[in-house]
Design a protein around this nucleic acid. Structure first.
Length: 485
DNA sequence: TAGGATTGCAA
DNA sequence: TATTGCAATCCTA
């Protein structure tokens, strides 16, 4: 296997929180060299690169090659360990490359079907909204919606944006019971969103084989996650209803049409249990209990809880990972602030070592100005000792969340490497086609379903093999991605 | 035409 | 007054 090196990924391993990892910026920062911009060479893209002055083109090309080499030299001379680069990021890069080239098959007919349905619904709604408003206007323009609702129709307004009154969905939903037009606008925008971003957006990016090849970016997030563009396959709607239908357009390329998805079950709460060593949290997972129900029992002081109570407990579990305030929780799940405070307090009482673990993380961070993860990533947090309380608490939330989210991102990266090796070693013809943060999706040859079902969860779960906690992977299968849940 | 602002989708 | 992202659209400069 050829050896690979990547200066960009090397810099990302060193400081993933930087927004300025491009070669131009690095040359300036690290080597004090101002590189020629592409705009300069092409006269602000007026010229095609094949037509630019040859000397300019030569210098521009030389800079790219030479500066990369210089940067590599400088990185070699630094003492920082690049184990993460060689053991994780570069192998992941190769897996991503394969996934991008392989692509995902999209059922065009299905998209057209959704398009027809939504287009009609949207037009009907538009007519209705215009009739109620008494005039035609652009429902997709916040400003025009604002003028109609708060200007002409004088609906009550309560939430502001930077420049005017907000007309976002949560505002309109509060108005919906008294003013049906608000509800219609929300629905219209919902249909609009699905049509433009997902139906048309994805259709425009299909190749001649009806495959879509996303671009995975490995060096943009500050939390180790990947991101995806053109199209973004990591924010395809997962809801029920018409939006969720988009996922049914993601299908297999193989005869027999089989898709499989494997996702880490509650991976972040499991990591929290692992990092905090909280006995109660560990007990829940060791005994394979339902974490939301167990938290519910704790915070509602009851051996049996209702479905609504479980829902609240689920939210509490979810939000605690981010160190949320009582105010934030109350706003988010629409409960009174004192209730929210009680639930959060009850969570920490139920899982006492979580609180002391968070306190330790914050204390260490204050002392060292960085946090470290299970896989030895380091993140400097500049605001951790800030006197401004807002900055201080935002930094604390960052510090608390960082080891959890990074560890989860690293776990799935290691899983991708291991899975990819296994696919090759066993000459598996099915493809790994998508990664959605805690989920791996496969395009499956039907007769390989069984071997994947038996092996992929095992491989994914083997990434963290400790005595105190086990990772758990759920398997979904179906004819389309939608059915894989 | 570029880019800020708003909105909304995911984990 | 949770985090990380991407992108469509509108609209001003």
């Amino acid at each position: 296997m050829a050896k690979f090196y990547d200066t960009l990924l090397a810099e990302y391993v060193k400081h993933p929180w930087t927004r300025w990892l491009g070669l131009d910026n690095l040359a300036k920062q690290e080597l004090d060299y101002e590189m020629m911009s592409y705009d300069t060479v092409t006269n602000k893209k007026k010229l095609d690169f094949k037509d630019v002055d040859l000397d300019l083109a030569a210098k521009y090309s030389w800079e790219d090659v030479y500066m990369t080499a210089q940067l590599k030299k400088q990185q070699d001379s630094q003492t920082q360990s690049l184990d993460l680069l060689f053991d994780m990021e570069i192998p992941v890069m190769q897996v991503l490359k394969d996934m991008e080239i392989t692509g995902v098959t999209v059922d065009k007919e299905k998209l057209i079907e959704i398009w027809k349905k939504l287009k009609k619904e949207a037009l009907d709604l538009q007519t209705k909204i215009h009739e109620t408003a008494g005039e035609e206007f652009n429902i997709n323009s916040p400003k025009q919606v604002w003028e109609i609702l708060f200007g002409k129709l004088e609906l009550p307004k309560w939430k502001k944006t930077k420049t005017w009154w907000s007309v976002s969905a949560d505002v309109l939903e509060n108005l919906a019971s008294d003013y049906p037009i608000a509800k219609d606008i929300v629905l219209f925008r919902h249909y609009s969103k699905i049509l433009s971003t997902y139906v048309v957006g994805i259709s425009d990016l299909l190749d001649k084989n009806s495959l879509v090849h996303t671009n995975y970016n490995q060096s943009v997030t500050s939390t180790g996650r990947l991101s995806s563009t053109n199209p973004n396959l990591q924010n395809i709607p997962a809801s029920d209803g018409i939006a969720g239908e988009i996922r049914s357009a993601f299908v297999s390329r193989f005869e027999g049409w089989s898709m499989m998805a494997f996702d880490y079950s509650q991976v972040e709460v499991r990591i929290l249990a692992f990092l905090s060593w909280d006995e109660n949290l560990l007990w829940v997972f060791q005994n394979e209990r339902d974490i939301h129900a167990e938290t519910g029992k704790f915070i509602f002081w009851s051996e049996s809880i209702s479905w609504d109570q479980r829902k609240i407990a689920k939210a509490v579990n979810f939000w605690v990972i981010y160190g949320i305030s009582a105010f934030g929780l109350s706003k988010n799940i629409d409960i009174p602030i004192p209730d929210a405070r009680n639930y959060i307090d009850a969570f920490y009482t139920s899982y006492p070592k979580v609180r002391s673990y968070f306190d330790t993380v914050i204390k260490n961070c204050e002392r060292k100005t960085y946090v470290e993860t299970h896989f030895w990533r380091r993140r400097y947090i500049s605001g951790i000792n800030d006197r401004n309380k807002m900055i201080k608490s935002a930094s604390e939330r960052e510090a608390i969340n960082m080891p959890i989210q990074w560890t989860s991102a690293d776990i799935i990266k290691l899983a991708m490497i291991k899975v990819s090796d296994w696919l090759k070693e066993n000459n598996i013809q099915s493809h790994l086609i998508m990664q959605v943060h805690d989920e791996l999706v496969f395009d499956v040859i039907p007769w390989e379903e069984k071997i994947l079902e038996e092996n992929i969860p095992k491989i994914m779960e083997s990434i963290l093999e400790t005595d105190i906690i086990k990772l758990k992977v759920d398997t979904g299968r179906g004819k389309t991605w939608k059915e894989c849940k």
